[in-house]
């Protein structure tokens, strides 16, 4: 099945790699992003996803242009703050983008998928939901998304639509490379948390998402696939 896939947060980092990979697999890709990208393999819509009216207009525009067979809810925001410093507006922001946007896109497009008897929804979460200091709003919002994945999976399974979560660990996007320069103490610290001893590549995350979106993955639904170099595994010492 080659279909029309919507990817949010599509022009940067992991979202960009997912978009390229889906396009390579023969899908038509519609990107939703904060900024355009002249080299994007498909059309790009540029809304402000924090604005409800913008989200509604984007959904209407994409829906009017044709049926949607797949959705990758990748757009996200990770504000760092210790619990005592969590701000109300940042809590709202986290849930607006990580949760509300995903719900609205899935609600709008899942009906068509179910009617046509085939569909794929992939929610991108994070290894931070296993617990990571400073990530109250981000991990909280993404954990909500993980729970909704299982709910939607049950509701949509009879209609040929699978719903899964893909949870990447540290990934060497351009942003990651800029913030954690090779050789720095900060990067060494990240590496020491990864049993595989290296940072993941965006293409590796994209390859997993592409598989989850393929016909071969029709028996896989409601799962949280952690692709994190072993970061989420227990690391206690013997004692």
């Amino acid at each position: 099945m080659q279909g029309r896939f919507v990817v949010t947060g599509a022009t940067r980092g992991i979202g960009r790699a997912i978009s390229s990979r889906l396009a390579d697999a023969g899908h038509e890709v519609v990107g939703v992003a904060r900024r355009g990208d002249p080299t994007f393999p498909g059309a790009v819509v540029v809304p402000d996803l924090f604005v409800a009216a913008d989200r509604a207009a984007t959904i209407a525009e994409i829906g009017a242009a044709g049926p949607v067979d797949g959705l990758v809810n990748n757009a996200g925001i990770a504000r760092g703050a210790s619990l005592v410093d969590v701000r109300d507006d940042e809590l709202d922001e986290a849930f607006d983008l990580n949760v509300r946007t995903a719900v609205e896109f899935a609600r709008a497009f899942s009906g068509g998928m179910a009617e046509r008897g085939w569909g794929r929804i992939v929610n991108i979460s994070t290894v931070a939901t296993v617990g990571l200091a400073g990530r109250t709003t981000y991990a909280g919002a993404k954990a909500a998304l993980e729970a909704m994945t299982r709910v939607w999976a049950i509701e949509l399974a009879p209609h040929g639509v699978t719903v899964n979560t893909v949870s990447p660990g540290p990934t060497a996007t351009e942003m990651f490379e800029a913030v954690y320069p090779p050789g720095s103490a900060a990067r060494t610290e990240v590496l020491s948390s990864l049993p595989v001893g290296r940072i993941g590549r965006p293409e590796e995350i994209a390859a997993l998402v592409a598989f989850v979106c393929s016909d071969d993955a029709g028996y896989l639904t409601g799962q949280n696939l952690r692709i994190d170099g072993g970061r989420s595994l227990g690391r206690g010492v013997m004692g």
């Binding site: 940067r12 942003m175 800029a178 913030v179 900060a186």
Partner: peptide, 13 residues
Amino acid sequence: LEELEALKNRWPD
């Protein structure tokens, strides 16, 4: 802007 936000979110303190 985004890169600076990423730095702030990584090292909020």
